[in-house]
């Protein structure tokens, strides 16, 4: 009896391991939307066995970097391009031009001869506000970064810490690219109203959703999905324009690249996949015709600031250390 229990336990345990044939996909796409996408992949390639490791951008990027010498993942799907650029610099990626790469807009893909990454969608920073809480306090809804300096918002705003979160850095770079050297003066002023610099990019939005802190600088997708969940939020894209980040795919450089990895990357930017992405994101990377997404600006591309992702990645160290010295007490 004891032996049987032990045996079953071991079998179940072994089932937690991976086998060699399975395609390992690392992704930072949102939990709740992955099933719809992956079903489509499965329909197209029923013979491919796959496993998805999904976590927040920070953890996925850390995992990939830590696994650098001996990668587990075969492909990266929908991870911040900033991280991919970092991997690219460390020569961790393998170039591959997936089928249909020409449809991807130039600012949304790596422009090497053989591109090392190709975008699928972009998301923008947004201000998420809780309408009920603002009404309670009889406060106006902010519509720009400048509005956030209103002293009546003191202690009501949260934003992600740029050193802790990719979104946080995106916000910082977005502000920097519109305000230039005035950025630091602005941030000093804003700091007076900030209740908390969070460790995650979503947190300011969710805090706004529950009314913990009625105003959160976060990203559009999160705000819109909270609204869909029924939270009393309004998603505001600041007048100055939004910083944005691309979610992109890449092939990991390793000794044995699986045939299925190429197939997956082909699918991941195919028209059918893009149609699915477009249901959740206002901006998709390819130039096919899609419907507008509720909650986002009618012309989302116009809201996006003119940002070069590689420049943004390159400026990170300097901007973060400036941030530190400006906001240090």
């Amino acid at each position: 009896m004891k032996k049987i229990v032990f045996f079953i336990m071991m079998l179940a345990f072994i089932s937690c391991s991976n086998d060699n044939q399975t395609l390992i996909i690392y992704t930072a796409l949102e939990n709740d939307i992955i099933p719809a996408y992956i079903d489509d992949f499965h329909k197209n390639y029923p013979e491919i066995k796959y496993k998805i490791v999904r976590d927040s951008t920070g953890i996925i990027a850390s995992k990939i970097l830590a696994e650098k010498d001996n990668p587990t993942a075969d492909v990266i799907w929908g991870l911040a391009a900033t991280s991919l650029i970092q991997f690219q610099e460390q020569e961790m990626l393998e170039g591959y031009a997936p089928k249909g790469i020409e449809k991807i807009k130039p600012q949304f893909k790596d422009n090497s001869a053989t591109p090392q990454w190709a975008g699928i969608d972009a998301w923008m920073t947004a201000i998420v506000v809780n309408t009920i809480e603002l009404e309670k306090r009889a406060l106006p809804t902010p519509s720009s970064y400048q509005d956030l300096l209103d002293p009546r918002y003191k202690g009501l705003i949260t934003m992600p810490h740029p050193a802790s979160s990719g979104t946080g850095y995106l916000i910082l770079y977005g502000i920097f690219s519109t305000m230039g050297e005035n950025t630091w003066e602005y941030l000093k002023e804003l700091d007076k109203n900030i209740a908390e610099y969070t460790h995650s990019g979503s947190k300011p939005a969710t805090s706004a959703g529950t009314g913990e802190y009625p105003i959160g600088i976060s990203f559009g997708f999160r705000g819109v999905s909270l609204k869909k969940m029924g939270m009393p939020v309004e998603v505001i894209f600041p007048q100055e324009g939004s910083g944005w980040e691309l979610e992109a795919n890449a092939l990991i450089k390793k000794a044995e690249i699986k045939e299925s990895a190429y197939k997956f990357l082909d699918w991941a930017i195919s028209d059918s996949a893009m149609q699915l992405y477009s249901k959740n994101y206002a901006i998709i990377a390819s130039d096919i015709q899609v419907e507008n997404v509720e909650g986002f600006p009618v012309d989302p591309l116009a809201q996006m600031l003119n940002i070069d992702l590689k420049e943004s990645a390159g400026a990170k160290t300097t901007l973060l250390s400036n941030w530190n010295s400006v906001l240090k007490k």
């Binding site: 089932s15 937690c16 391991s17 991976n18 399975t22 390992i24 949102e30 939990n31 709740d32 496993k51 998805i52 490791v53 999904r54 976590d55 927040s56 587990t72 995650s200 979503s202 947190k203 939005a205 969710t206 959703g209 999160r222 999905s225 909270l226 969940m229 939270m231």
Partner: peptide, 19 residues
């Protein structure tokens, strides 16, 4: 954690983060 196994406790973090 691996592709085939993610403990419940780890999943809590993701859930909390996405609201």
């Amino acid at each position: 954690y691996t592709a085939n196994f993610k403990p419940m406790s780890v999943a809590i973090i993701g859930m909390e983060e996405s609201g």
